[in-house]
Every structure is written in C-alpha cells, then in structure tokens.
Amino acid sequence: MLGAILASVGLEIFLIPNNIIDGGIVGISIILSYLTNLPLGAFIFILNLPFLFIGYKQIGKTFVISTLFSVTVLSIGVTVLHPVPGLTKDVLLAAVFGGIILGIGVGLIIRYGGSLDGTEIVAIILDKRTAFSVGEIVMFFNFFILSSAGFFFGWDKAMYSLIAYFIAFKVIDLTIEGLDESKAVLIITEQPKLIAEVLMARLGRGVTFLEGRGGYTGQSKSVLYSVVTRLEIAKLKTIIDEIDENAFVTIHDVHEVMGGKFKKKAIH
C-alpha cells in the first residue's frame, strides 16, 4: 500500500502535471488519459486486467493478488491526487524528484512480492521462453512507450521522461537491495589463519574456511569466505594488504543475507 501511494504521489504531484510519462502500462494510460480526458486511474486498472489474468495462469496466485492490490491502490491514488496542483513547474526538478519517489514506491512493491505493471508480467513469461532477460524485455517495451511521448508532448518532454525513467530504475534497485548492500568476499592467501583472526577481531565478521587446490601447483589451499557490508570493503582491503599484499581477492554483490550471525552495521 505504501509503495502504491508513493507511486501515486510521484506521478500526480511531479510527473503528470509537467507532461512527463512513465514506462509500461502506466505510460500508455497517461497518453490515453491525455488524449481522451478520461480518468487516468480507470485506464491503469482496466489495461492491467488482461495481464493479471495471464499472470494468474502462468505465474501464480500470490503474485497476481499482490499486483492487483497494488494496481487498485495506485488507480485510486492517482484519481484522488489528480485535482492537487503539481509541486513544481521546473521540468527537470519534476523529473528528478518524481523519478525518485516513483522508484521508491515501485521498489517497495517489488521487494514485498508484487508488481505495478502488466508489462512486467509479460516480461516474466517471455523470459522463460526466449533468450532475453526480464530487464531487456521491459526496456524494449518502454523504449517505444517513452519515445511516443515525443509525438504527444514534444521531444523535450520525451527526453525528460527518459531522465525520470532512468532515475526511477536506479532507485528501484536501491530500494530492493538497500543502500547498505552486502558483499561476499573470497580470499586466497598464504596467511589464512592470521587474516581470518584479524577480520573477526577488527570487523566482527565471521569467516569460513573452504578447501581449495591450486590448478597449476596442485597444492591444497585454504580459501576464506566472508560477508561484509559495502561500507566495510575499504577497511577489509586495507587489512588484507597489510598482512598479505599478494593475496587474491574477489568481491561479489549479495542481494540478501539470511540466518547466521550476520548483522549490518556501520564502521566507526
């Protein structure tokens, strides 16, 4: 509900008053509402229904129910907020802040198991049947939808729409993964025990020893595995460099951490 309300605010308080559109079904609905003077909320709800039916058959009941709830709240939200005047007439500010608020809203919905757009349902289904990813399919749809804004609102508004969409896209990722995302670290070193002890003492992180074997030498090696926050990466690199400057280190993004004694914290 909170995500759909924020998306409504981003659309009706920032984007729509400045003729900036979003991608997907929402973008199509904005164009149709502009051309017909009919309520935006009605288009959003009605155009999403066929995709929800397809999703119910192909994806699952829980996802579709969550999406239906989000779409319903969004439809009501944009209808209620439509008479409210926009907060700014500066198109760039509207694109930036509208994109941020919309991105947070959509990110919250996706993070908790729903969606706000029928094109994402189509993308999920096509992802299983084609070589294209969900992101690539959605981007393909949105390229044509956002480009069409140029014919109705002018090409400058189409470019502002692309700015808003790019910002929303990035903010969605931040909302889903969190600002303080985790990193998995693999360390191959000649000083495994010492590095493990220092990491546990100075960072307070657990370290797991994995058994490895050198492909060239055939010698057994201890590989250290640990999960830290993004904020701790610089300190971790310093610690490893102080002990073994020849250590081989790989760092990977981790989208979610569950169980164990891992707890995110800031470095003081």
Rank of each mutant, 00 (worst) to 15 (best):
V228M: 02
T119W: 01
A7L: 15
R205A: 01
A196C: 05
E232I: 02
A234K: 08
L93D: 10
F248D: 13
L162S: 00
I172H: 03
I176P: 03
V91P: 02
T130E: 06
F143G: 08
D127K: 14
S220C: 13
F209S: 11
A149W: 04
S226G: 05
I125W: 01
L186H: 13
S115F: 12
F51I: 02
L40T: 09
I13E: 06
I44L: 09
I13C: 04
K264L: 01
S182M: 01
L11P: 09
I240W: 14
N246F: 09
S75L: 15
G55D: 05
H255E: 07
F151D: 12
R205Q: 02
K221V: 13
H252C: 13
K193M: 13
I59L: 15
L224E: 11
N19S: 08
I25P: 06
K128H: 15
T208M: 08
P192M: 15
I240F: 13
G135L: 03
L194Y: 09
Y56A: 05
G24N: 01
L6F: 13
K128Q: 15
G107N: 12
R202D: 05
I54Y: 06
V73C: 14
F97D: 00
D253E: 06
M139N: 11
A42I: 15
A131F: 15
L231R: 04
L35F: 07
L199K: 07
G98A: 00
G27M: 11
V122I: 10
F69K: 10
Y160T: 00
F169I: 04
A234S: 09
L194D: 09
V106Q: 11
T62Y: 14
A149L: 04
V198D: 01
L199C: 10
G260K: 07
I46R: 06
I187E: 03
G41D: 13
T208W: 09
R230G: 03
I16P: 07
V138T: 11
K183L: 07
S66I: 14
E177Q: 01
I243E: 09
E136P: 00
L15H: 09
G206C: 05
L224N: 11
A164L: 03
F152C: 07
G27K: 11
I28L: 11
A149T: 05
G154L: 01
P83K: 00
I5L: 14
Q219N: 10
L47W: 02
L40P: 10
P83C: 02
I195Q: 04
F169A: 04
G23H: 00
G24Q: 02
R202S: 03
D173G: 02
E181R: 12
I239E: 07
F153V: 02
S222C: 09
F53G: 11
I44V: 09
L102P: 07
T72Q: 15
F169Y: 03
L162W: 01
I25L: 10
I28M: 06
L52F: 14
V122C: 05
I176M: 05
S226C: 07
L174E: 10
S147V: 05
G55W: 04
S222F: 09
E136I: 00
G23S: 00
G260I: 12
H268D: 13
G215L: 15
L68N: 08
P192S: 12
K265T: 10
